[in-house]
């Protein structure tokens, strides 16, 4: 059933300070509204319990991109379209660009934001695996100040995250150390455009003299939160990416993931595909 519109309030704060002030004055009551590509779907389905929203779409403090020698920092309102148009991101962060290109279609990419994707906290979201591979940190702001947290530990359990009432995600910062790494991304869905992932894999590794010197791997839709596959990474460090290590790595991955059956796929299918994607990743590293 559709939502009863008069029950939903929305205001446009004049700047970030005003937005945070509003959120602090009634903790938990006001919730940010960015591109609306998750929130409006809930509203239309009559499943949006929250009723007071702050329109953050025009907040300049949450937009834009900065490049320093160590980091690329993106505003939380960065859209998927903006990600794909950025030269530095295309050159150094191809996994994020691939994830953006495979998220919805043009219209969704024009409105959907990275901050919204993170805060929506879906284990099937497609940019989080790339963000984990790049060791992203996110800046969380409130009327009381600002803190940076490692994104890999941001989601704590299904739909739960390290974000409190009165807090907003302001920026996302990526380490620029992965540009020379070999990188691999694959989203498996029902069709290429529009479909929500059945499973999504992002991996990158620094290969030196035929050995995996360092590696980062993350997957979507295989656990209650987007998963950083630390045990697989540990097992792979120092190894040659070949058939010798494949079985052990696949077993480690199988032990690390906890996929479920849902409307999009089944747990056994997801386990199988996860194993296959890991094999493909190792082939890329060997090649």
């Amino acid at each position: 059933m559709r939502a009863y519109l008069p029950a939903y309030e929305m205001e446009t704060p004049r700047d970030l300070e005003a937005a945070l002030g509003r959120m602090a004055s009634e903790p938990g009551v006001w919730r940010p509204f960015a591109g609306g590509t998750d929130l409006m779907v809930l509203l239309e389905a009559g499943k949006l319990p929250h009723q007071k929203f702050l329109n953050i779409w025009n907040l300049a403090e949450l937009r834009g991109m900065e490049v320093s020698s160590e980091h690329v920092t993106l505003g939380a309102l960065t859209t998927y379209t903006e990600v794909q148009r950025n030269k530095t991101l295309l050159r150094e962060f191809p996994l994020l660009c691939r994830a953006a290109a495979e998220t919805g279609s043009v219209a969704t990419q024009n409105r959907g934001t990275l901050g919204g994707n993170i805060a929506n906290a879906s284990p099937a979201a497609d940019s989080p695996p790339a963000l984990i591979v790049y060791d992203a940190e996110i800046e969380i702001v409130s009327a009381g100040g600002s803190r940076w947290v490692h994104y890999a530990s941001f989601h704590t359990e299904y739909k739960k995250m390290n974000l409190h009432a009165g807090e907003l995600i302001r920026r996302i910062r990526l380490l620029r150390t992965h540009a020379q790494w070999k990188q691999y991304f694959r989203k498996v869905g029902t069709r290429r455009a529009q479909a929500i992932s059945k499973i999504c894999f992002a991996g990158a590794a620094r290969v030196e003299a035929g050995r995996i010197a360092d590696v980062r791997i993350a997957l979507g839709s295989v656990a209650p939160t987007v998963l950083h596959a630390v045990r697989v990474e540990e097992l792979l460090r120092g190894q040659r990416p070949g058939s010798a290590v494949l079985q052990a790595a696949q077993d480690a991955l199988n032990a690390e993931i906890a996929p479920i059956d849902d409307m999009r796929s089944t747990a056994p299918y997801r386990r199988n595909v996860a194993r296959n994607l890991l094999a493909e990743f190792l082939e890329v590293l060997a090649g």
């Binding site: 509204f33 409006m40 219209a107 024009n110 409105r111």
Partner: peptide, 27 residues
């Protein structure tokens, strides 16, 4: 569809293609 999947409601806003079923009036 009313949920961003079909594009029947596509319009341009400030030059960008958007699904008008997912844009709140305020914005």
């Amino acid at each position: 569809c009313g949920e961003g999947e079909c594009g029947a409601c596509s319009i341009e806003m400030d030059g960008a293609l958007v699904n008008s079923c997912l844009v709140p009036a305020l914005q």
